[in-house]
Design a binder for these strands. Sequence first.
DNA 1: GTAAAAAAGGACACAAATATCCTTTTTTAA
DNA 2: TTAAAAAAGGATATTTGTGTCCTTTTTTAC
Lengths: 152, 152
Amino acid sequence: MLSKTAEYALRATIYIALKGSEDDKLGIEEIAKGIDSPKSFTAKILQLLTQNNRVISSVRGPNGGFFLTDRARKLPVKAILEAVEEANVITKCVLGLKECSETRPCPMHTQYKDIKKQLKQMFEKTSIQQLVEEFNKGNYFIDNLKGVRKPC
Amino acid sequence: MLSKTAEYALRATIYIALKGSEDDKLGIEEIAKGIDSPKSFTAKILQLLTQNNRVISSVRGPNGGFFLTDRARKLPVKAILEAVEEANVITKCVLGLKECSETRPCPMHTQYKDIKKQLKQMFEKTSIQQLVEEFNKGNYFIDNLKGVRKPC
DNA sequence: GTAAAAAAGGACACAAATATCCTTTTTTAA
DNA sequence: TTAAAAAAGGATATTTGTGTCCTTTTTTAC
């Protein structure tokens, strides 16, 4: 469904949102270990996320690293996909037809349209902050993202 | 969401189901034109579909070509994805985590699980025949698949 | 102001997906 | 039984995605 690039982008952003802050920035080494991704490749992706619409902020030098501003935390998950140019999953036809709409639907349009709508909603309505809050309420039991534990 | 390979596989199968029959087999040239795909590449994919679980049948030589048996028409769309080894979209975690389940969910699990379920349903419950029938009832207005027109 | 720490950036390497071309095999029809 | 038509198969090319490595720039702390 999503490329490795998009997966790492999502995982990294969520990881930074959960574990880091402006006062406690995270280094690329820790992030890559935390989300189980190749370090240099992830660094490149974080570059995209700091440039394109600034989902992630960064400072260089000692005590530097990556973090999310309050503004960034309010962004929808979709913003991450946009930064890595993969937001089109949300709108694309399942069969990959250039033209596929209500008036000129593809053979699977009827079956897929509601799912696509929900996919869109998910990425647009869910903010990064929301994912963090849900975590803090203890609704997750993730140690899937290494080093991030459910608060007791 | 799906690879080109999967998209062409779906489009080709549906195209053959709609336009062809055992008595009126379709050649690779027509199919590729019909679904707007590269000919040789599509030929390779059709090979997969004739080998792996025989979604498509074929005969060589003059008057040969591709067609779907009645048995094949009853197959779920998922069978096509399986043949090109891409049925995993149905079960994969959005974030690409190896482990992601109800008891050990990823940070987006809550948001995604119902969508994944519906995706699964769509590919498993929709048969190729169903897509054809829906077309014949006139519920589509596709000429997206070239040369396939809504019956009047 | 100098050394060290960190991200940024550039160049390259490797792998997988996509695409093309040519030859071989099978089948049909004359 | 031979020519032609069609898919099957093999080899290779191209492009994109993924991944690594090394140098440069920025920043901080001493």
